[in-house]
Design a binder for these strands. Sequence first.
DNA 1: ATCCAACATGAAGACATTCGCAAGTCATGT
DNA 2: ACATGACTTGCGAATGTCTTCATGTTGGAT
Lengths: 111, 111
Amino acid sequence: MGVPLYQAKAEFFKTLAHPARIRILELLSERDHAVHELLEEIDIEPSNLSQQLAVLRRTSMVVSHRSGGEVVYSVSVPEVRDLLLAARTILAGLIAVQGELESELAPSHRP
Amino acid sequence: MGVPLYQAKAEFFKTLAHPARIRILELLSERDHAVHELLEEIDIEPSNLSQQLAVLRRTSMVVSHRSGGEVVYSVSVPEVRDLLLAARTILAGLIAVQGELESELAPSHRP
DNA sequence: ATCCAACATGAAGACATTCGCAAGTCATGT
DNA sequence: ACATGACTTGCGAATGTCTTCATGTTGGAT
């Protein structure tokens, strides 16, 4: 087994632990986007967006190339879409679990 | 679409962005573990483990119950296992992509 | 060819959050 | 009551985020 394996996994999730970066990946999993297109959708400062893109580039989750005057980004691994979907499923499950725990602690719907 | 949705997803990934917590979830996805059992496998301070368990409890990803003198933890949503698996797959893909990029940038590096 | 405007990235700073170690608290079983 | 195991709290250190300013690049206008 690789020694720093859990570290690598943690780093991977860490790159996903930001609203803007998730938003970027969701947009890119639909189709490629230029930077100014992302800017119109995400509503953050250009330099901030560039920073988040740099994080995603550093981990090779996205790649960029120039096309005329603009820079176009695309996801490097298509399975990213599956991961975001799986996360959504679990998130829904977690909300359900939280609801159960809540009603257990406050049994207002029990006769 | 829910407005603070990306925030919720980011929080979710943030709870996964830690080596110890990933390790915990992997162990718990195999079978339930008591705290002292986790301690034997993970090699961190007890107080630190307790902190990480608290984080996982706060997000309802794990649940705990007393059984005699021990406290036993278990995952609350079984799909967590699927997520960890998906993450592993993507991680392997990313490493492959990184290898490609590396050989593109330094073609003479590899014979 | 030169200049200009829009686009994209980078660096440095203040600011907030998180991590890990240390002690202390609480509960349980013998 | 004692001992053990589990959990919380507080503080310094480290990390991450966002804003401001500066740099570089492309394409078109003068």
